[in-house]
Amino acid sequence: MRDLRRKFAMVALATTAALGGLAVPTTASAESVSAVQITVCNDAGVTQVFWVRGYNQHDDWVGSPIWTVNAGTCATGWDYWWKQNSSVELHHKPGNGAWTWKQAYVPRTDGSTTTLRMS
């Protein structure tokens, strides 16, 4: 009788563990929360570095790493997703200059990226 209870308990634990994994919340995809990646275009005549701060696809206020964008080109902040229809802070620094920032609007879009410009 004791062995039967032990076997039943083991089966119950194994079943609970297996089914419990199904209830774990998964990371939301960017598409499900209307998020996009940001491409920054550098209209200045010098290389600049930039980073972005704003609400991500999980609705958390976060900052990105620093990326480099050469003069007259654009760079995308890959693997960072930003909430659409909201504002972000675009921080940038030209060459050896000082850091500046501006508020930028991330519009709703059908694509997976939106473009911001800095000069």
Rank of each mutant, 00 (worst) to 15 (best):
G97W: 00
L90T: 04
V88A: 10
G54I: 06
L90R: 04
V40K: 03
M1N: 13
S87F: 06
N56E: 11
S86C: 07
C74I: 00
G97K: 02
S32T: 03
E89K: 09
T73Q: 11
A35P: 11
A30Q: 14
T16K: 02
G111P: 06
R117S: 14
S119D: 15
A44T: 07
G77F: 06
W101K: 12
T113I: 03
H92M: 11
H58N: 15
W81A: 09
T15H: 04
L19F: 10
A75M: 04
A23R: 06
V36P: 03
L13D: 15
P65R: 09
S64T: 15
D60P: 05
V11F: 01
N96K: 10
Q48S: 13
R108L: 11
A18W: 01
G54T: 07
F50R: 01
I66R: 13
A98L: 13
V36I: 04
M1K: 13
R2V: 12
F8H: 14
V52H: 07
A71E: 14
T15D: 14
V49G: 00
W67A: 12
W67S: 05
T109C: 07
D3A: 13
L13A: 15
D43H: 02
K7P: 05
S29P: 13
W51F: 09
D79E: 15
Y105A: 07
D110C: 01
P107K: 07
P65K: 02
V106Q: 01
V88N: 03
G21A: 00
